[in-house]
């Protein structure tokens, strides 16, 4: 099973985080339509992998969104859209969906993140059981038409569209990057700047 359980520092254990990676996805239109129609079976963060640098970059966004969820100050409909918005460096939500979200006809490599909060108590007499890792994976495999791929830095880096990332995170003409000769170093520094840009979102 290629659905990974993410363990992040400073996240309550009652919150379960899962992430998967699909390459060469062919049904972005269908998945996008499910999000638009607010289909409750498709409560996932669908992230276009071409705008993502690394795992650290990805989980930074996941952490920010979960922090906002814990705080109760979501600015978007749910924690999953909040993850996509967290990848942005400004507060333009539509922009964030366009750049980091799933886009029909464009998204080929897709990262899926699922946040399972603890079941809310005392709502009704029928407490809905949180879905298991296996159930989530089954559902994803059924509906995402693509190649399940391990969510590793080396796999992610193959999907990264650097000109796009540089534009989104304003990394062109940055003195701290231009002085670096080593490509590997430059990527490390770009990742830092991207995470910093996200941390300073809207300031």
């Amino acid at each position: 099973m290629a659905l990974e359980k993410l363990e992040l520092e400073h996240v309550p254990t009652a919150y379960q985080l899962y992430a998967g990676f699909f390459r060469d996805v062919t049904n972005a239109e269908f998945l996008h339509a499910q999000l638009l129609s607010r289909n409750s079976e498709f409560e996932y963060a669908f992230i276009d992998a071409s705008s993502v640098i690394s795992r650290l970059h990805l989980v930074s966004a996941v952490y920010s969104a979960v922090n906002v969820l814990l705080d109760g100050t979501l600015r978007t409909p749910n924690v999953h859209s909040e993850i996509v918005v967290s990848l942005n460096t400004n507060n333009n939500i539509a922009d964030a969906y366009r750049r980091w979200g799933i886009t029909p006809g464009k998204t080929k490599d897709l990262i899926v993140v699922k946040v399972v909060p603890p079941p809310s108590p005392a709502q009704d007499e029928t407490p809905t059981q949180p879905p298991t890792q296996l159930a989530i994976w089954d559902h994803l495999q059924q509906h995402v038409k693509g190649t399940p791929t391990p969510l590793t830095d080396s796999e992610l880096s193959q999907a990264t569209d650097w000109p796009k990332v540089r534009k989104y995170y304003r990394l062109n003409g940055v003195p701290a990057l231009d002085r670096l000769a080593d490509e590997q170093e430059r990527r490390k520094h770009s990742e830092r700047l991207a995470i910093m840009g996200m941390a300073l979102r809207g300031l």
Partner: peptide, 28 residues
């Protein structure tokens, strides 16, 4: 907090040796 973070980002972009900002919650 916001002004401190902005200064750090500016320095970092310019290559001044300062710590990078990872994540923040100015309200908290």
């Amino acid at each position: 907090l916001a002004s401190e973070a902005k200064v750090l980002e500016r320095c970092w972009r310019e290559g001044v040796p300062v710590p990078a900002v990872y994540v923040m919650d100015p309200a908290a």
